[in-house]
């Protein structure tokens, strides 16, 4: 039984059809990447998966046991956040609220969970640092730790590597790979960095309002579309 099934999805954004005819499945433990240019409907699809936007037609169904609140989400950074006075711990703990029901305060278990995720992302020493004083890559790790606090089995990432330098990106890719392979976390990632994504992901969905390609990363490399987007670098 797949973790997530999308069937004949149609969604619109600002009155226009943003995507149509999208069908795919994500199995437990998959590393699934959605690629495409700006305006190809990736972000709208993501909003649909998170339940922030309702599809016009088609269906999105999760396996029983996956609650919408149990999805770890890594959104794109906003301007508000870049100058936000908060400690790393405060930010990461806020990920625990999603599982907290109506309790007003954090429990000791929440705090342990936050610490554990900071360690997993190798930023435990930044616990008391000020979020706005961190580098872009460190901030992204903090937000990833927050997402992990919320995540049961599924992680949803929206362009996690935008604006990061190659070395920092490589570090984050390595971490994601580790979370996927060693911890068995299912990852769905949106990206326009096709080159790097193909090396990481198991499955690729290439969107341009309609799905242009859907299959394994290997098949994508062999396909006409994949070759066009990956350029000559495929055989190297």
């Amino acid at each position: 039984m797949p973790l997530l099934v999308c069937r004949d999805l149609v969604m619109s954004y600002a009155g226009k059809t943003a995507l149509s005819g999208v069908s795919f499945e994500v199995a437990e433990g998959d590393y699934f990447c959605i690629v495409g240019e700006n305006g190809s409907g990736k972000s709208t699809l993501l909003k649909g998966l998170l339940g922030l936007k309702r599809p016009d037609a088609g269906e999105i169904s999760y396996a029983p046991g996956i609650r919408r609140e149990g999805i770890g989400y890594l959104p794109q950074q906003t301007d508000v956040q870049k100058n936000f006075p908060a400690s790393v711990m405060e930010v990461v703990l806020s990920g625990c609220l999603n599982n907290g029901g109506w309790r007003p305060f954090y429990t000791r278990r929440d705090k342990e969970r936050a610490m554990e995720n900071l360690r997993r992302l190798e930023i435990a020493d930044l616990k008391n640092a000020c979020y706005r004083e961190l580098s872009g890559g460190q901030q992204q790790r903090v937000l990833l730790a927050r997402a992990l606090c919320a995540a049961g089995r599924l992680l949803l990432l929206d362009e996690p590597l935008v604006g990061l330098d190659p070395l920092v990106s490589a570090g984050l890719y390595r971490l994601l790979m580790k979370l996927n392979r060693e911890n068995g976390l299912t990852i769905i990632m949106i990206s326009h960095d096709v080159q790097s994504v193909v090396k990481q992901a198991d499955k690729i969905l290439h969107m341009h309002t309609k799905p242009l390609f859907y299959g394994t990363a290997e098949e994508y490399r062999q396909s006409e579309l994949g070759r066009r987007f990956l350029g000559g670098a495929v055989d190297a």
């Binding site: 998170l50 339940g51 922030l52 609650r67 919408r68 609140e69 999805i71 989400y73 959104p75 906003t78 508000v80 956040q81 936000f84 908060a86 405060e90 930010v91 703990l93 806020s94 990920g95 609220l97 999603n98 007003p104 305060f105 954090y106 927050r146 997402a147 919320a150």
Partner: peptide
């Protein structure tokens, strides 16, 4: 304010994340 302190923080810091998490 005290009762909703943590949630107000979450909504202030990142509305999209909070909304996706069912807040």
């Amino acid at each position: 304010y005290v009762i909703f302190y943590n949630r107000l923080f979450a909504v202030t810091f990142d509305e999209n994340f909070a909304r996706a998490g069912g807040i």
